[in-house]
Structure formats: C-alpha cells, structure tokens
C-alpha cells in the first residue's frame, strides 16, 4: 500500500505527519519505507538515525552540438517544443538554452546530419538509508541549480516500492512534482491548517485528488489557530478528517529540534496509532 502525505500549501506539517507515521509503523515491525519526494528541499532524514546504504545519480540527456556536421537547416529548432534551441543560420550560430531543455531527444531525432549527439547532466541523487531491518528511508535530492525535480521524484518512488507499506512525503504545490507523487499513491492524506491560505490550497489539492480518483482524507494541523471555515467546508463536502493536532508550542519545538513528536508525547503517540489503524484497515 502506498500512502502519500501531501498538501498544496507548504509548511502545513507534511513531514511531521510522514516521519512520525513512518516511525510508528517501523517500530511496530511493519515492512515500511519512507520516500522523501520533496526533492527540492528534502528534510525527512533529519528525524532518523540511519546508515547510508547506497546512492544513485539521476541524469537527464542534453544535445551536444557538432558544428562541423551542421548544415543549419533549422530542423532541430523546429522540432524543439520547449524553445531551447536558438539558431541563426546566416551567422552559423547554434545555441542550446540548457535551462529550457527537457532532454526529450526530439532535436537529435530531427537532425539528419549527425550534428547533434547526446550527453548527460546530473539532476540529483536518490539515496537509500537503512533505519532498521524492516524499514528504509529513500531520499530524493535535487542538485542545487537543477530545474526539474520530477525525474528525481520518479526514481525515488521506484526505489521505495519494495515494501508492504510505502509512505510518500510529497512536495508542496499543485503542479508537476505534486501530481507525479500523488499519481503513484493508493491513498492520500492531505495536511492542512485552519487558515485562509491553508483552506484555499486544500481546495486546490482536493480538486486534483478527486480528478485522479484517489481515496483521501484530511489531517488538520495547528487546530485552534485560525478560523472554523475549513471545518464547515469539509462538512459540506462530506470529507473525512482522519486526525486533528492542536496548535501546541511544545510540538512545534520538538519538531524544530529534529525530534519525533511520538517519542516524547504519549497523547500524540495515541493519535498516530489511531491514524495508522484507520489507514491500514481502510
């Protein structure tokens, strides 16, 4: 079973939920993996003592220009759907705008003169970390300066699938990185906070999970801070609230210092037990 912990808005507590849920299940001797899919800013590793087992690089193809062979016919520029090729035939200028290239291979296919070979650039790394004999943490980490985390996220999820339960700590937002993570999940936990920003972004995320026909429920974090609009909305839409965590400075401080909340707060531990039961028996 693959469970994605996600939210449109950043900083609502996705990583808090994902790491504590993972810790609980791994201590209960489940075969469980945690995949940190927030490859732009991965943080799950902070919360665990682990040993790095291996790492693999995620690469993207890039065209490599061979000026001697080029006839400046313009076919590559025409075939590039990302406007990544800039050509001035009369001046014999070819420029690749690397930031726009998606490595699709259309330009090399277009070129009939072998003037475009291919090379690879690194987008990031997928690291495998052993937490205990039955569980590991798989971390996707985008190289700073690389543009798209999507290939890193895809590889991170693939590397985490060899387990009974897989928890995906999803990236924020509602565009490609979020969609790619959600698309692999059997169940989605949407984390929100009862603020106007939280509610607005929750509605956007719900629109997507409904389009993708994924079963889901909502976790309200920092309850008590904000207004009750989110509750009214969820009631009207008949959406299940699977857990509520009160705003509590102590929880914020435990999380801040890189520790697991379930290890020092029995009340929160009980809440996570209930949450895990409701997901597993769903």
């Amino acid at each position: 079973m693959i469970v994605a912990v996600a939210s449109g808005k950043g900083g609502t507590g996705k990583t808090l939920i994902a790491t504590n849920l993972f810790a609980l299940l791994s201590k209960a001797s489940y075969n469980v993996n945690l995949a940190d899919c927030d490859a732009e800013e991965p943080n799950s590793l902070i919360f665990f003592k682990s040993t790095k087992e291996s790492a693999s690089e995620v690469r993207q193809m890039l065209p490599l220009f061979e000026p001697e062979a080029c006839t400046y016919c313009g076919k590559c520029e025409e075939y590039c759907n990302y406007n990544a090729i800039f050509l001035l035939p009369e001046k014999r200028i070819f420029r690749l705008i690397e930031d726009l290239c998606h490595g699709c291979g259309a330009c090399t296919y277009a070129c009939k003169f072998d003037a475009l070979k291919e090379t690879e650039i690194s987008l990031g790394e997928v690291g495998m970390y052993r937490v205990n004999s039955k569980s590991k943490l798989v971390e996707g980490r985008l190289r700073v300066g690389a543009l798209t985390p999507v290939p890193v996220i895809k590889e991170t999820i693939k590397a985490s699938l060899d387990s009974e339960i897989v928890i995906l700590d999803a990236p924020p937002g509602t565009s490609c990185p979020f969609i790619h993570t959600i698309s692999k999940a059997d169940y989605v936990l949407l984390v929100t906070e009862p603020t106007p920003f939280g509610l607005n972004d929750l509605k956007l995320s719900i629109q997507i999970v409904r389009q993708m026909e994924k079963p889901f429920s909502v976790i309200i974090n920092r309850a008590g801070l904000g207004s009750d609009d989110v509750y009214k909305y969820l009631k009207k839409e008949k959406i299940k609230i699977s857990m509520e965590l009160q705003f509590d400075k102590e929880i914020a401080m435990i999380y801040s210092s890189g520790k697991l909340v379930i290890e020092s707060r029995a009340d929160i531990y009980q809440k996570f037990v209930k949450l895990s039961e409701s997901i597993i028996h769903n």
Binding site: G10, E41, L142
Partner: peptide
C-alpha cells in the same frame, strides 16, 4: 514559490 526548482529560479 517554495523550493529551489524551476518556478523559484
């Protein structure tokens, strides 16, 4: 936006 990917850059 949050993050360090294409939209932030």
């Amino acid at each position: 936006p949050p993050g360090i990917g294409c939209s932030l850059i």
